[in-house]
Write a protein that binds this DNA or RNA. Structure first.
Length: 492
RNA sequence: CGGGAUGUAGCGCAGCCCGGUAGCGCGUUCGUCUGGGGGGCGAGAGGUCGCAGGUUCGAAUCCUGUCAUCCCGACCA
């Protein structure tokens, strides 16, 4: 009907856009490259954010907030980082508008209000944060400093896509300072584990933990850890990154501390982040041609109850039955909605809640009242069953758990079936041009080869998996000796 | 920044080639019958045709410019 969505087969990109727009996650805005996150999409982000925030705090971090603007002189202090982001920075040059004398009703930038120093709108906050940390850290007793911030950042992208790449996006960025290298490395690894746990257990999305190659590494980092997920179209998506920054920022911003021997040392740093991009990953990994499929643990709504009735009398009976059930479910911590809006009919509601990916739908009508039953439909398998009203809360709790596990298992099976070894460039390309996925291949370790393969196949090295087995072989491209396979894929 | 496409009612589109004052579906409003998979019937409301110029007696339609968005590339989380 009016909410037909494009099928995955006919046009995957269009399917994704349709889903995001029609399920009410986001909307385009009047600003090029920037989107509006609508209430339903934001509710999803809130659930993700709340859980991540809890996990950060459980690992000893605290939240703070740093400015949106970074003076250019600070921004350029860490050279590699500045260079890496320079091409996509929005810059504030003036601080005032005035009426345009040549055009009535229009405003113009006041040329007399030019800033002495331009302000860079943060593409990431290392610069302003390390400039601040300098004043906070004197002694080893001030360490470690474990701070996270929830913020927006701006990266002026040429080409944008809802959630996956927008000019402005929401994220969290953790920035930590440590007395020793080992401690900082451990922190970066720990946060990678936190991300992996969150994405797998809450978003039901299996990930591969790994390390980036030098050319894919965060600008200014010594080492970049990442979690990589696989979408249904066979393309990979970086779901989160955690960086060991060494002493690069400490040196650039002169952040030193006195150690126990009263020697001055530069501190060791990490930073780590995930963004609203995760919502894009969630959509592309689980959803189907009917709409979103959301994992119960982060679904804004877990259960929707739809009454089916003729006349006020039946409606009142259903209300009474549902009322106590809703109370019970809420007490059990279930996010439930009783949709008794009489403006939409049951069939319409069924389709609408499927589009929105609500994990469970309960329909109750006159027949059910007689039989003390209800019709329960699960979104992931689209399976419908008649269940007893007795013990229904337990039935629902169990099903929600089952959906969560099943969604993960399904995504994991798909992912596992799409990690394919290749030993020739012919195989390599055949896999990518076919169903896609990760191609596990030997690489000689040089940036030149990596670049050449990218040029030829559009595939990049997504990561060198953690605990990657040693295996002697020859580079798939250059034929030079190699000690391990790495994962290639076309990526978002 | 290069290539392609689109802008007409809240949404999706037709009309444009061949100029004559705007139409369809969905939604919406009212009434009614309805209700277990996106309802039926009847009656309404709703549009300076993205914006600015130009050609013409007359422009949604032709011309020029401009803005915006989407898709494909180069860049990136």
């Amino acid at each position: 009907m009016s909410k037909e969505i494009t099928s995955r087969n006919s046009d995957y990109s269009k399917w994704y856009n349709d889903l995001v727009l029609k399920a009410g996650l986001a909307d385009y805005s009047a600003v090029r490259g920037c989107m509006v996150i609508k209430p339903y999409g934001f509710a999803l982000w809130e659930n993700m954010r709340d859980q991540l925030d809890k996990m950060f705090k459980d690992t000893g971090h605290v939240n703070a907030y740093f400015p949106l603007f970074v003076p250019k002189s600070l921004f350029e202090a860490e050279e590699k980082n500045a260079e890496g982001f320079a091409k996509e920075c929005a810059v504030v040059t003036h601080y005032r508008l005035k009426a345009d004398p040549n055009k009535k009703g229009s405003l113009m930038v006041d040329p007399e209000a030019k800033l002495e120093e331009e302000l860079v709108v943060r593409p990431t906050s290392e610069a302003i944060i390390w400039n601040t940390y300098k004043g906070w850290i004197q002694s080893y007793r001030d360490l470690p400093l474990l701070i996270n911030q929830w913020a927006n950042v701006v990266r002026w992208e040429m080409r944008t896509r809802l959630f996956l790449r927008t000019a402005e996006f929401l994220w969290q960025e953790g920035h930590t300072a440590h007395a020793t290298e080992q401690e900082a490395v451990a922190e970066a690894e720990q946060m990678l584990e936190v991300y992996a746990e969150f994405v797998e257990e809450w978003m039901a999305l299996p990930v591969i933990k790994g390390v980036k190659t030098e050319s894919e590494r965060f600008a200014g980092a010594v080492n970049t850890y990442c979690i990589e997920a696989l979408m249904q179209d066979g393309k990979a998506l970086q779901a989160g990154t955690s960086h060991f920054l060494g002493q690069n920022f400490a040196k650039a911003f002169d952040v030193k501390f006195s150690d126990k021997e009263n020697k001055l040392e530069y501190v060791w740093a990490t930073s780590w982040g995930v963004s609203t991009r995760l919502i894009g990953a969630l959509v592309m990994a689980h959803s189907d041609d009917e709409g979103l499929v959301l994992p119960p643990r982060i679904a804004p709504l877990q259960v929707v109850i739809v009454p089916i009735f003729k006349g006020e009398e039946q409606k009142a009976q259903i209300d009474a039955r549902v009322g106590s059930l809703v109370q019970e479910l809420k007490k059990a911590g279930v996010r439930v909605k009783y949709d008794d809006n009489d403006n939409a009919r049951p069939g319409w509601k069924f389709a609408e809640y499927e589009l929105k990916g609500v994990p469970l739908r309960l329909a109750i009508g006159a027949r059910d009242l007689e039989n003390n039953s209800a019709e329960l439909a699960r979104r992931d398998t689209r399976e419908k069953m008649s269940v007893s009203m007795d013990g229904l809360t337990d039935t629902i709790l169990q099903l929600l758990d089952d959906i969560q596990l099943r969604m993960f298992a399904k995504a994991r099976d798909y992912r596992d079936a799409h990690i394919i070894p290749a030993d020739t460039m012919e195989d390599f390309l055949r896999i990518l041009d076919g169903e896609g996925g990760f191609v596990s291949a030997h690489w000689d370790g040089t940036a030149e080869t990596e670049e050449a393969i990218k040029e030829k196949t559009k595939a990049t090295i997504r990561c060198i998996p953690l605990n990657n087995p040693e295996e002697n072989g020859t580079c798939i491209f250059s034929g030079k000796p190699s000690t391990q396979r790495v994962l290639f894929a076309r990526a978002y």
